[in-house]
């Protein structure tokens, strides 16, 4: 038991990322408002960003800049996860932009942003056309 606790203590970043991920997933699945779902999606993506950044961490690490000293002598953070997350953040922003644009169009077309009301309207549309 104490082993598990010690493990959790030294690897607390995993606990945080998994908790954030579950919060995000819960919002996406359980919320009926379309914007709240997008917020959930953003929390989910942020959890992954934090996970990536945390795996590049080194104790007392500094920025990976080429100093005068030999690079082996100073500990530096792994820059690759940071670079990857720059790309992933751009992707996340693009998805949020498309999602919000769609929500604006949905609000205009349906007059609501509640999933349950949209489904009811879709149902009546189908009965109308049949």
């Amino acid at each position: 038991m104490s082993d598990v606790l010690r493990h959790l203590g030294t690897h607390y970043h995993y606990v945080i990322y998994i908790a954030l991920m579950l919060i995000g997933l819960f919002a996406v699945l359980a919320k009926g408002n379309l914007i709240k779902k997008v917020i959930g999606l953003n929390v989910l993506q942020t959890a992954v960003f934090l996970f990536y950044i945390s795996i590049g961490r080194k104790a007392d690490g500094t920025a990976p800049v080429l100093w005068d000293q030999k690079p082996e002598t100073i500990p530096y953070e792994n820059p690759v996860p940071h670079v990857l997350m720059l790309t992933a953040i751009v992707v996340g922003v693009s998805i949020t932009a498309v999602a919000l644009a769609l929500i604006i169009r949905i609000k205009r077309a349906y007059g609501t942003m509640e999933e349950s009301e949209i489904l009811v309207l879709d149902e009546s549309d189908q009965q109308g056309s049949a």
Binding site: L25, L41, Q45, V48, P81, I95, I106, D125
Partner: peptide, 27 residues
């Protein structure tokens, strides 16, 4: 039709969850 907007939105939500899982796997 307006259903296309909602179909696109639903796909966006589900697809982004899938893509996030892929990103986590790669990590």
């Amino acid at each position: 039709r307006r259903q296309a907007l909602y179909a696109g939105y639903s796909y966006l939500i589900v697809g982004s969850i899938g893509a996030t899982f892929i990103l986590l796997g790669i990590g």
